[in-house]
């Protein structure tokens, strides 16, 4: 018999119905018999991703990170995409799919967090290694992803570090059980000088996810997940508003004969 293998979830069937579960265990814990009513959302998230129940400090860090990431706001491209779904009356799932797809990229999205977490794996809290890494040319290896156009974790367009970024870094660094957030807080100016860009939310998130001992793949996935609430709320809000109130923007056709190549 072909089976699906998992180390995460174990169900015991109801008597007489192998397609219904009587008991469901997550990483060994009885979800409905013991966790429910005692565990927090952050406990469950951490348990699913890491396989372990979080310490108090880990849960606190994850809770604070989740609050910081919950709503990138309507100027963010991922939320903008979700609102494009909402304004036209698209399905809820398509609004979230749009937010995920656009929030997946190298400019403030999940892939940027992945790359920034790879940098933490390579450089740890060693400024000389960061200097070498940030001076390297971005990878041009063939991939479905475009080449990075700015250092991962830093802001492509900002001219100074945003106050919310600094506030988030300070709060997360204060509660983190790991070393990276505190080191980032202490060395932010040097890293910004090395990269030529101010720190971004993605950089703070990457350090936090690394401090939670998550892999880049896990961090990318969790970051995608944690930014969805705002996209959902803004999409729902736009569903209630006339499409005439949503920008359509003006069109400037630069050259209407240059599109065709010989």
């Amino acid at each position: 018999m072909q089976t699906i293998s998992t180390q995460i979830w174990h169900e015991e069937a109801e008597p007489g119905n192998p397609f219904a579960a009587q008991v469901a265990r997550c990483r060994g814990y009885d979800v409905y018999g013991e966790m429910l009513g005692r565990a927090r959302w952050s406990d469950m998230l951490f348990l699913l991703f890491s396989g372990q129940r979080p310490t108090t400090a880990q849960a606190e860090l994850l809770e604070s990170l989740a609050v910081a990431l919950a709503n990138p706001g309507p100027r963010d491209a991922s939320v903008h995409a979700a609102m494009c779904g909402g304004i036209g009356g698209s399905t809820s799932a398509s609004c979230l799919t749009a937010a995920l797809a656009i929030g997946a990229g190298l400019n403030g999205g999940g892939r940027e967090v992945f790359l920034a977490m790879e940098n933490w794996q390579l450089c740890a809290c060693d400024l000389s290694r960061w200097a070498i890494r940030l001076a390297e040319k971005p990878s041009d290896v063939a991939s479905i992803w475009p080449a990075a156009e700015h250092p991962a974790g830093f802001d492509a367009h900002a001219i100074s570090t945003g106050l919310p970024v600094c506030q988030t870094l300070a709060v997360l660094a204060a509660c983190s059980p790991g070393q990276r957030l505190a080191w980032l807080d202490a060395h932010r100016l040097q890293l910004e000088a090395l990269s030529g860009h101010p720190l971004a939310f993605s950089g703070v998130a990457a350090a936090a996810l690394a401090d939670l001992d998550l892999t880049p793949e896990q961090g990318e996935m969790l970051y995608l997940l944690l930014r969805l609430p705002g996209a959902a709320a803004h999409a729902l809000e736009q569903k209630q508003i006339s499409h005439k109130s949503f920008p359509f923007f003006s069109l400037e056709l630069i050259d209407d004969t240059n599109g065709e190549k010989s």
Binding site: T3, T6, I8, W9, H10, A13, P18, F19, R27
Partner: peptide, 11 residues
């Protein structure tokens, strides 16, 4: 998928 179609290999 029945419960026995899932091969649990965790703790």
């Amino acid at each position: 998928l029945s419960c026995t179609d899932i091969a649990y290999q965790g703790v």
